[in-house]
Computed example of a mutant assay.
Amino acid sequence: MNRIVASLAICLAVAVAAPARAAEDGKALFAQKCASCHGPDGKGQTPMGKKLGAKDLTHEDKEPLDEIVKDIENGKPPKMLAYKGKLTPEQIKAVATYIKGGLK
């Protein structure tokens, strides 16, 4: 009985920690791959972002998650690189979730 309770407690802890870890991964990936153009705040006001006309991502919370995922996967040629094949689907979803969550 104690083993069952302990196993359930571990499963619950992992399930609760997974979304937090995904959010941290999304934030870290955004900082690595996106912030040079979109800026750490997502407003696109970096020198490169201004030059390329980077999209202000601070209002993406209203966009469907699957649309944000598609934009990251396919890019916005010729300005934004496509990340399909460069990031895993899980990483792309983590970045999209971070953006949709208001970059928080």
Score class of each variant (00 low, 15 high):
Met1Cys: 14
Ile4His: 14
Val5Pro: 06
Leu8Met: 10
Ala9Arg: 00
Ile10Glu: 02
Ile10Met: 01
Leu12Pro: 09
Leu12Met: 15
Ala13Ser: 07
Val14Gln: 10
Ala15Met: 04
Ala15Pro: 02
Val16Cys: 10
Val16Leu: 14
Ala18Gln: 12
Pro19Tyr: 08
Pro19Lys: 08
Ala22Glu: 14
Ala23Phe: 09
Glu24Gly: 13
Glu24Lys: 11
Asp25Phe: 10
Lys27Tyr: 11
Lys27Gln: 15
Ala28Cys: 08
Leu29Glu: 15
Phe30Arg: 12
Phe30Gly: 09
Ala31Glu: 15
Ala31Phe: 09
Ala31Ser: 13
Gln32Asp: 14
Cys34Asn: 08
Ala35Asn: 10
Ser36Gly: 08
Cys37Val: 10
Cys37Met: 04
Cys37Pro: 04
Gly39Lys: 02
Asp41His: 07
Asp41Arg: 11
Lys43Glu: 02
Lys43Met: 01
Thr46Glu: 00
Thr46Leu: 03
Pro47Tyr: 07
Gly49His: 03
Gly49Cys: 04
Gly49Thr: 07
Lys50Val: 13
Lys50Trp: 00
Lys51Ser: 07
Gly53Ser: 06
Gly53Ile: 02
Gly53Leu: 05
Ala54Lys: 05
Ala54Val: 04
Lys55Cys: 05
Asp56Ser: 03
Thr58Leu: 10
His59Phe: 14
His59Gln: 15
Glu60Gln: 13
Glu63Val: 15
Leu65Glu: 06
Ile68Asn: 04
Val69Glu: 04
Val69Asp: 00
Lys70Met: 08
Ile72Ala: 01
Ile72Gln: 03
Asn74Ile: 11
Lys76Val: 14
Pro77Phe: 03
Pro78Asp: 07
Pro78Met: 07
Lys79Asp: 13
Leu81Phe: 13
Leu81Glu: 14
Ala82Cys: 05
Tyr83Lys: 10
Thr88Ser: 09
Lys93Ala: 04
Ala94Asn: 00
Val95Ser: 02
Val95Arg: 06
Thr97Ile: 11
Tyr98Asp: 07
Ile99Asn: 04
Ile99Cys: 08
Lys100Ile: 02
Gly101Lys: 09
Gly101Met: 00
Leu103Phe: 06
Leu103Val: 03
Lys104Met: 00
Lys104Ile: 00
